[in-house]
Amino acid sequence: MTSTVPRERTGTVSPAPATPPSRAQRRVRPATVRRQVGLALAILVVLVAVGWALRPAWFTGYDPIIGVPLDKLQAPSWNHWFGTDHLGRDIFSRMVHGTATSLRTSLLAVAFGLVVGCLLGVVAGYAGGWASDAIMRVVDVLLAIPSLLLSLVIVTVLGYGTLDVAIAVGLGAVATFARLVRAEVVRVRRSAYVEASVGVGTRWPVVLIRHVVPNSSGPVLALAALEIGAAILAVSALSFLGYGSPLPAPEWGSLVAEGRNYLASAWWLTTLPGLVVVALVLAVNRIGRAVGREWGDR
């Protein structure tokens, strides 16, 4: 949400060019307006999804688990926005109630990838030498294995719990984070202000925390936002394949999977939940791009 705020600080950047660009020079252009509207829409989508996860009962009155058999396989209508399934359960309600599990798993996955990846990346970037070589070769191996395959293997070993799925998905992101963080740390570590900080007598762990980490974090945060989108897809994919919460608990991926058998007669069972996943992933990506652009300016 950072980029909805007008860019106060970045506006005054240019170190005295022929004429410093003033506020009005950055007058809002149509393209900018379109971009802002798109961003606002993306934020709205994410807020709704977060609302679903935190307070599902505010959004739907139907029970997600117990259906009304008489109302089975109804097409979308005013009463049942997303229609009903073969047991007469309201799909919209199942979607809303499944949000918490799906989002929590995705966020945990990204958090796991971020924390482990950053630790590895910072160590590799700051220590250099053989430590860097060792870590980066492990990361290369991780990158070489298709992430879905890796997740499947890990889930099979660990189990189907939220945390297990999160670790399985997050491990795929570790490699990406580690590489980016290492590159950023190496860049920042060579900068003159880090040398100056060491030069005035600051101890290196302090330099690391006060200079290197904050200055490396921008692109990493942008990547984290993008990875949330990818994680939602990956978690849904695992749940689609049956590696998720056991039925009848709703989860996005398993909803799509359940509807698969009725694709010919009841298209809404797969299509509408699928569209919701797509919308959320796109929205998260949009926000991630905005975060990236905001940081790219510095």
Binding site: P15, S191, A192, Y193, E195, A196, S197, V198, G199, V200, G201, H211, N215, R298
Partner: peptide, 17 residues
Amino acid sequence: RRVVQMIHQNPFSSLDP
């Protein structure tokens, strides 16, 4: 380092932005 201090060539890069 308390005795020797250095001023870098480029003040655009020697201060943490």
